[in-house]
Simulated scan of single mutants.
Amino acid sequence: MYAMAVLMAVIILAPFAWLVISSISSPADLVSSHVHWLPERPTLERYRQIFTSASGGDNVAGDFRVAMLNSLIVAGSTTVISLVLGCLGGYAFARLRFPFRRTTLMSFLAIYMLPPIALVIPLYLALSGLGLLDTKLGLIVTYCSLVTPFCLWTMSNYFLSLPPELEEAARVDGCSRFGALVRVVLPLARPAILATAMFGFLLAWDEFLYSLIFTSTTNSKTIPVAIAEFTGKFSSDFGLVAAGGVLAALPPVLLALVFQRFIVGGLTAGAVKG
């Protein structure tokens, strides 16, 4: 069992290790016909370019730094908005009984299952009519249409796994339904909330298609588009692409390490009733 765990760890971590090695390798090492497992002349020049170069013009390294900030703003705002809507809506679907409840919930799932390319034209026309093309707000609205159904379904299923007697006891003690949600249900649902927030953040952080189509300037481009622009028409800086990949992977990795126990608990807690 331990041998298989080590083998799986090596398989999963090897590409990331090679990404780090490539990001500090010299151009000669990267294009050499012989594989260099360790760079002969390691350099941090690409990271220096990203963090110190001026943005604008043809400086893709400086633009990447702006794209990192854009991605943090867009993904963070999308996660907060979608999580609030997912918690309130998920609780309503789990506890309230109203006409077309199941149909409405299934419609959210159907929207989530649609391929993103199918929604490009209507979303583009909507953002164009609202004047939100090439803006971070436009991306936040677009990403919420993707992340909110995910949060809604995840939180709804988790709330169904919690015993309703806890809320009833809180209401007997004088809490309103909203008070019982805030004081009793949400604290119990903290593992699911953190796990949902983590995966919702990843959905917004890694999204490429909408960011590519709905943005055109550095002011609103996100990390996936900025990395794609490292590849030029006649040449590609593979080391800069690797450095961008390392920096793009750091926030999700750090979030996963910090909230690891909550993520595992959120994924498994809904499997047991009561």
Rank of each mutant, 00 (worst) to 15 (best):
Gly174Trp: 08
Arg102Asp: 12
Ala248Asn: 10
Tyr210Met: 14
Ala248Thr: 06
Val120Phe: 02
Leu162Asp: 00
Leu83Val: 09
Trp37Gln: 07
Glu167Trp: 06
Ala9Ser: 15
Glu165Met: 11
Val246Cys: 12
Leu181Thr: 04
Ser128Phe: 12
His36Pro: 01
Val241Asp: 03
Leu109Ala: 14
Pro149Lys: 02
Arg171Cys: 05
Ala189Pro: 01
Phe159Val: 03
Phe64Glu: 01
Lys221Trp: 03
Phe201Gly: 03
Val66Ala: 10
Leu139His: 07
Lys233Phe: 15
Val253Gly: 10
Ala14Cys: 13
Val272Cys: 10
Pro15Ala: 11
Met68His: 01
Phe16Lys: 08
Val185Glu: 05
Pro191Met: 05
Glu167Asn: 10
Ser145Asn: 03
Pro115Lys: 06
Phe238Cys: 01
Ala14Gly: 04
Arg46Glu: 03
Pro42His: 07
Thr231Lys: 14
Ala75Trp: 02
His36Thr: 11
Phe214Ile: 07
Ser176His: 11
Asp237Met: 11
Met198Glu: 01
Ala248Gly: 10
Leu125Tyr: 11
Tyr112Trp: 14
Thr196Pro: 00
Phe230Ala: 06
Ala204Asp: 03
Leu162Thr: 05
Met198Tyr: 15
His34Gln: 13
Pro224Ala: 06
Leu44Asp: 06
Met8Ala: 15
Arg190Asp: 00
Ala256Asp: 01
Gln49Glu: 14
Phe16Trp: 08
Trp205Met: 07
Val84Ile: 15
Val31Pro: 02
Met106Thr: 09
Tyr2Trp: 12
Ile263Thr: 01
Ser235Cys: 05
Ala180Tyr: 04
Val84Lys: 07
Asn219Thr: 15
Leu209Thr: 10
Pro115Gln: 11
Val185Met: 13
Ala126Asn: 12
Phe208Tyr: 14
Arg65His: 13
Phe51Gly: 02
Leu114Tyr: 09
Ala249Tyr: 01
Val35Ser: 11
Leu119Cys: 08
Met68Trp: 01
Pro39Leu: 11
Ala118Asp: 10
Leu7Gly: 14
Phe208Asp: 04
Thr103Gly: 11
Phe150Ala: 02
Arg261Cys: 00
Gly56Cys: 10
Thr222Asp: 05
Leu30Lys: 03
Ser107Trp: 12
Ser53Cys: 09
Val253His: 05
Ser71Val: 04
Leu38Pro: 06
Pro42Tyr: 08
Leu160Ile: 08
Gln49Thr: 04
Tyr143Lys: 01
Ser23Ala: 14
Leu139Tyr: 06
Glu40Phe: 04
Phe100Cys: 12
Asp58Phe: 11
Glu168Asp: 15
Ile11Phe: 14
Pro149Gln: 07
Ser82Phe: 06
